[in-house]
């Protein structure tokens, strides 16, 4: 039984210009202790899907239109009460965010913010909570943790703040850590350190991690399984090996070609032609067809893709415009 089983999740935003289908019918699951990567361009719905699971979508304009997210075989996170959800947030499922500069409350001391989850979820007394918080800071590699506790976020560097965020998210030893672009806003030199800390803490605590990123390079060597999202849908999903060695969807292929570190020196960097589609209104056919370099006819582009298991554990949205020799998979 998976730790988290998301089925047919749909999250729409009701804007003045129409209904924006940010997440349009996606399903995936997460096993205990597993590392799952969700990859896609900005606006592909990867963050929204995870925010939906924790009920962090601003409502209105957002609305979860359907689906289930069964946590631990019991609770449906999408249909349970706000009160139940609060017991899970920060205790069973935690989250760290993209921009550590703005994700910590600038008006409260680090100690207050770190100890807060212990108070609300564990009803710990102040003294014990302080010790636990200091230990949590040390475990993410912050020195002089006791002195640091009484400081404010602005006295920390970006990398340090992200460490604090990680310490805070993991302080209650959650089952799942959702990391939303945890390194995007940081210096390149710090990025590797932060990924290393997440990996280390995951190993210590046995936490499952969902890593959301637009950079396939970050996922490589970190995640066991990968979901590739495009325009609110999962277009390909599989183990890291399958995605990297045998990518089938044209979008996955294009993403891989655009990883800077895998790219040959001297040649121009590959960029995916065109722009992501506008997600407002109902869409038919394949959203990626206009940007795909595979030859296809307009009639073929208007066909609906079929999400198929092409080999064990490897699912692809099979469509004439995006998968080479698509007929063999149907």
């Amino acid at each position: 039984m998976p730790l988290l089983d998301v089925q047919n999740l749909k999250t729409y935003f009701h804007t003045r210009n129409g209904v924006l289908r940010a997440v349009d019918d996606i399903s995936f699951s997460l096993e205990r202790g597993e590392t799952l990567g969700i990859v896609g361009e900005s606006g592909s719905g990867k963050s929204v899907s995870c925010y939906s699971i924790l009920g962090l979508i601003p409502m209105p304009p957002g609305r979860i239109e359907g689906g289930k997210a069964i946590y631990d075989g019991k609770t449906d996170l999408l249909n349970c009460s706000e009160k139940e959800l609060r017991k899970i947030r920060g205790k069973r499922v935690s989250m760290i965010f993209q921009d550590p500069m703005t994700s910590l409350n600038p008006f409260l001391k680090i100690s207050t913010q770190l100890m807060e989850p212990l108070f609300i979820h564990e009803r710990m007394d102040k003294k014990k909570a302080f010790d636990v918080a200091v230990q949590a800071l040390e475990e993410v590699g912050i020195q002089d943790a006791v002195q640091r506790m009484s400081m404010y976020p602005h006295e920390f560097s970006g990398g340090m703040r992200q460490r604090v965020m990680i310490a805070m998210a993991l302080i209650n030893k959650p089952d799942i850590l959702i990391a939303d672009e945890p390194t995007t806003a940081l210096d390149v030199t710090v990025q590797a350190q932060i990924m290393e800390i997440i990996k280390q803490r995951q190993k210590d605590l046995g936490t499952a991690v969902i890593l959301i990123t637009h950079d396939l390079g970050v996922v490589a060597g970190f995640c066991e399984r990968i979901n590739v999202m495009y325009a609110g849908k999962i277009v390909e999903s599989g183990t890291a090996d399958q995605i990297f060695k045998n990518p089938l969807h044209a979008y996955t292929v294009a993403l891989q070609k655009s990883i800077p570190s895998l790219h040959e020196k001297g040649k121009p960097l590959y960029t995916i032609p065109g722009l992501p589609p506008v997600l407002i209104g109902e869409r038919t056919g394949c959203s990626f067809a206009p940007r795909s370099e595979l030859p296809h006819t307009p009639e073929e582009a208007a066909m609906d893709g079929v999400f198929t298991e092409v080999e064990p554990g490897h699912m692809v949205e099979v469509h004439p415009a995006t998968v080479v020799n698509y007929k063999q998979y149907l």
Binding site: R86, N105, P117
Partner: peptide
């Protein structure tokens, strides 16, 4: 602000978010 989202992700109640954060 982002830090309000962080506070929600921590499992704080709406009243604690308003008055404390």
């Amino acid at each position: 602000q982002d830090y309000i989202r962080t506070a929600r992700a921590k499992g704080l109640s709406p009243s604690a978010i308003v008055w404390k954060h």
